[in-house]
Amino acid sequence: MLEAKNLEFYYQKNQPFKIPDIHLKQGEQLLIIGKSGSGKTTILNMLGGLLKPIKGEIIIDGTSLYSLSGAKLDKFRGKNIGIIFQKPHILAPLTVEENLKLANFFSGKSNSKITGLLAELGISEKRTSKVNTLSEGEAQRVSIARALANSPKVILADEPTASLDDANAANVVKLLKEQAEKFKAALVIVTHDQRVKDHIANQITMGGLS
């Protein structure tokens, strides 16, 4: 489902990141742990089709990600990859539901999943709310719902728990795991948050130290 081979990337030539190969099957989960600056966000960006590696290949569901170009890559990303960020980044002018609909619109999928998804994440009653009326935890759940709106094959989460308290953090990880299993999607969580460690067994540590 998700395969990363021989990836190479550097911002400065003399400081290349050491990037491990990744191989995940349908429904498998992976935790990438590392300090800030270890390149864990960089690898997530590469996996998400946001940052082209200098060398190497990423294959998602049989498609080599960076053989696609321009709008095709954008559409592929929209359809197959759900990305969750450290901050929820709900689009403020839109309501919760509209944020999810927008994801469907850009990827060209139908809106049929939205109601169920919102119910499952416990934010049904916030459907027509704007982001500024949501609590931190609710907002993060909305961002998860949005990432799942297109039933992606790969779910990438970048520090999804960093700004949450313990209870919410555990909740979010639980949700991510549940949903990934339900959609049979490969889940990759990048974090330096030790609280996440116990939840996912399959782990890679970047930057050597941790």
Binding site: G48, L50, G70, A71, D74, K75, R77, G78, K79, I81, I83, F85, H89, L91, A92, L102, A103, F106, S107, G108, R146, N150
Partner: peptide
Amino acid sequence: DLAVMRTLGASSGQ
């Protein structure tokens, strides 16, 4: 916001 839209599948043309 624009970057988020891109991650949701919006092309730069859009």
